Simulated scan of single mutants.
Amino acid sequence: MRLWKVASGKAVGEPLRGPKDLPVLPVRDVAFAPDGDRIASAGEDKAVWLWNVGERERQPVGDPWEGHEAAVNSVSFSSDGRRVVSGSDDRNLRVWDADTGKGIGDPLIGHWEQVVDAVFAGNGDRLRVLSASRDGIIRTWPVPLHGYAALCDKLTQNPSRDQWLALAKMPQGVEYEGLCPDLLPQ
């Protein structure tokens, strides 16, 4: 991958490359994070990579995000930059936490052919994933809530921040996301 200055058409620094001990496989898609300092890439290595592309650091961030069983065709950030969605030849989509690289919830399964594009739409409690596939179908999906969607199914109202942290056993310092979309506010 290579960064380019739009105004001048000139390359910025050296190409972005993964670890030297890995084979070089084609990249199929890239997406800038809203902050402009990170890029997610998707490719034939079946993984999503996160890259620092700020002025000083131009390198992969941690290990690749693995979970797809075939080449990854599409990658996109949510508008707040906290999540990434990927779509793959394995016919599945995955939602990732952009800070930790961990998958959020189970893969989104429902297409009969390869997923060729996936993007986020909306924000807050209206955040959805839209996907397009070679099966000719465009689907819309709810976005998993950090793997705690099942917890929302067991509650009768949205918990307070302290209740959410206790119920979800989340470490202190994790931002409160206690919005269960179908429940009344606390």
Rank of each mutant, 00 (worst) to 15 (best):
N158Q: 15
K154V: 05
S74Q: 13
I109H: 08
A149S: 13
E175D: 05
Q172L: 10
D99C: 12
D99V: 09
A40W: 01
Q172F: 01
G147L: 02
R56P: 09
D117N: 14
L151C: 00
Q163M: 03
A71R: 14
R82P: 08
I137R: 14
D135P: 00
P107S: 15
S41L: 13
L127W: 04
S160E: 02
D89Q: 14
S86F: 08
S74Y: 11
C180F: 01
N158A: 04
D90N: 10
S76G: 12
A166H: 14
T156C: 06
S131P: 07
R139Y: 07
L183G: 02
G173T: 00
Y176M: 00
D90I: 06
E175N: 06
W96T: 04
V75E: 01
D45L: 06
Y148M: 02
A166I: 14
S74A: 15
E66D: 04
G124Y: 06
A168S: 10
D37H: 12
V53R: 03
N92S: 13
Q172P: 12
Q114F: 02
A118L: 01
G136C: 12
S131F: 05
V48S: 02
C152V: 09
W65T: 09
V85K: 05
W141P: 07
L179P: 12
D182Q: 10
G136M: 10
R83K: 15
C180H: 07
S131H: 09
W65E: 00
A166M: 08
K46G: 12
T100P: 10
A166F: 07
D117L: 12
R94F: 04
L167E: 12
P181Q: 05
W112L: 11
D45M: 00
G178V: 13
V72D: 04
L151H: 04
P144Y: 05
V72S: 02
S79T: 15
L155Q: 02
G81C: 05
V116I: 12
Q114V: 10
I39N: 08
D162F: 05
E44H: 08
A168I: 02
R128P: 05
G103I: 12
L184K: 06
D45R: 02
S133F: 12
D89I: 11
Q157K: 15
N52T: 08
P142E: 08
V143N: 14
A150L: 11
Y148I: 05
V72M: 06
P142L: 13
S88I: 11
V95D: 08
R83P: 09
E113I: 10
V174R: 03
E55D: 14
G54T: 07
R58Q: 13
R128S: 10
K154P: 03
G147K: 12
K46N: 12
G136N: 13
W49A: 00
G178C: 14
G110R: 11
H68A: 05
S88D: 14
L50H: 06
D182A: 01
R94N: 03
A42W: 10
L145A: 01
L165R: 15
A98G: 00
D80N: 08
Y148L: 07
E57K: 15
V143A: 04
G101L: 03
G62F: 14
A70F: 09
L184E: 07
V116D: 11
A42H: 11
G178F: 01
V129W: 12
D135L: 02
T156K: 13
G81K: 13
A71V: 10
G173H: 03
D37N: 11
M170N: 07
R128G: 01
L50Q: 05
S133M: 00
W65I: 10
D97S: 14
W49E: 08
